[in-house]
Amino acid sequence: MALGAAREIAAAEGLRGLTVRRVAEKMGYAPGTLYNLFDSLDALILALNGETLARLGRDLVAAGESEPSGRATALVDAYFDFVERQPLLWSVIFEHRMPGEGALPGWYSDGLSMLIDGTVAALAPLLGAWPEERRRAAVVAMWAALHGLSMLAVSGKLGLVSDETPRSLGHLLVTRVIGGEGCDLGRSSVLSSNAKASQ
Rank of each mutant, 00 (worst) to 15 (best):
G70N: 08
F38T: 05
T119V: 11
D59W: 03
G186W: 02
L37C: 13
A10V: 09
L37I: 11
S162I: 02
L146N: 09
L146E: 08
R134F: 10
G70L: 11
A12R: 15
E164C: 02
R134P: 01
V61G: 03
Q86W: 11
P125F: 10
E164M: 09
R187I: 00
L15F: 07
Q199V: 13
D110Q: 13
Q86L: 05
D59A: 15
L18S: 14
R167I: 08
Y35H: 08
M1S: 13
L41I: 06
R85V: 10
R7D: 11
L104D: 02
M114E: 11
A6F: 11
R97A: 12
G111I: 01
V174H: 14
A2L: 05
V177H: 09
G17C: 00
A63N: 07
A74W: 01
R135F: 14
V120I: 07
H147F: 00
G70K: 14
L126P: 07
V190Y: 00
Q199P: 11
R21I: 02
E13G: 01
R55V: 09
D117C: 02
S188A: 15
V23C: 03
M27I: 08
S40L: 01
A137S: 08
L115A: 01
A122T: 10
S192V: 01
H96M: 05
G28L: 05
A6D: 07
N49A: 00
L112Q: 15
G17D: 00
G180N: 11
A78R: 06
L44H: 13
I45F: 09
A141H: 05
P166D: 03
V154I: 15
L112E: 12
S189M: 07
R21E: 14
L18I: 04
P105N: 10
H147M: 09
L88F: 01
L18H: 03
L158P: 00
E51P: 03
G159A: 09
E13H: 04
V190N: 05
A124V: 06
R187E: 00
K157S: 14
A47Q: 05
E95L: 10
V92L: 01
E101C: 03
L160M: 12
L173Y: 07
A78P: 02
A62Y: 11
P105Y: 11
A12D: 13
I9K: 10
W107C: 00
R176W: 08
E65K: 04
I93F: 06
A74Q: 02
M151Q: 14
V83A: 08
D163F: 00
